[in-house]
Design a protein around this nucleic acid. Structure first.
Lengths: 148, 148
DNA sequence: TCCTTTTAGTTAGCTGAGCTAATGATCTAT
DNA sequence: ATAGATCATTAGCTCAGCTAACTAAAAGGA
């Protein structure tokens, strides 16, 4: 039986693994959020800015899609980033309904610093793992990405 | 060099892994949140109710600590769960400042249904993995829990 | 060409999570 | 008995997420 969802046989692996991953993701993000307190960027802004920096200029709609969020939500996040001078909007000549979002130099610099701060604790913990555990983690990461 | 945070040598494993885990956790939770739309419970309530159901009666402070959240935040979550008839508060005879939180029968039933719905997609994806990938995932899960 | 339809983004208005600061109630220890 | 510590709540804020309704611009057909 590998039909994925047998609520009665909770002992089956896919179900157990789903529960474990779920709880782990929640607690991981809650912990990482604390690191944001010292930053000018919280999680959604950091994530959005990251996409803008690394995926070049793109429209608000595409950014919303990439972040799995509705356009109005992204409008507000982008507005905040713009007010902080981290992102600039430019109108597209070909289609004047859309806007081209790109990061300013300040935005790029701030992103790198904030990311470093946010990921530092996690990276430290990973570095403290035994080599065999690190190897396991290395093999598991592509699988996790496939799941999300 | 395994000093965990060398922002210039981004190629180093702990740093890469931290970035990957971070992004994965964000996208995973965003996806799972969609499943909550059909449920009466969103992520924080589901998580809190889960702790109450499985970790027996406990105080609000302990629950807040388990969920890595401040007491006022947990007060509101618990209040909502109580209004839904999923949780009951009882005063502790020994220490009347504290409250004992326990789940009602309705709460237990609803938790199991909501969890099933939320985890079903994830469990399905996991079940669709190749056996070798599942084995890797199985070995990685304890490590991930240690990191969070 | 003009008029309809579709698409991109914004605005308005809501729910709810998260925080700090301040209060009330109770326990503890002097 | 009183002073201080501890548990929970209330008040008041910021911000993320949504839907519905709107404006502006593009696309396309009569």
């Amino acid at each position: 039986m590998s039909t994925a969802n047998p609520p009665n046989s909770e002992a089956e692996f896919p179900w157990q693994a789903a529960e474990s991953l779920h709880a782990t993701a929640i607690h991981l993000l809650r912990r990482l959020r604390h690191a944001d307190a010292s930053s000018a960027l919280n999680a959604p802004r950091l994530s959005a800015l990251s996409v803008i920096v690394f995926s070049g200029p793109l429209t608000l709609g595409h950014l919303a899609q990439a972040e799995q969020v509705r356009p109005p939500t992204m409008t507000r996040i982008v507005h905040a980033l713009e007010a902080q001078g981290l992102v600039i909007k430019s109108t597209d000549a070909a289609d004047r309904r859309t806007i081209r979002l790109s990061a300013t130099l300040k935005g790029k610099r701030l992103l790198l610093h904030a990311r470093n701060r946010r990921l530092q604790t996690l990276a430290t913990h990973i570095a403290a793992l035994a080599p065999a555990e690190q190897a396991t983690l290395r093999r598991a990461l592509p699988i996790l990405r496939k799941l999300s």
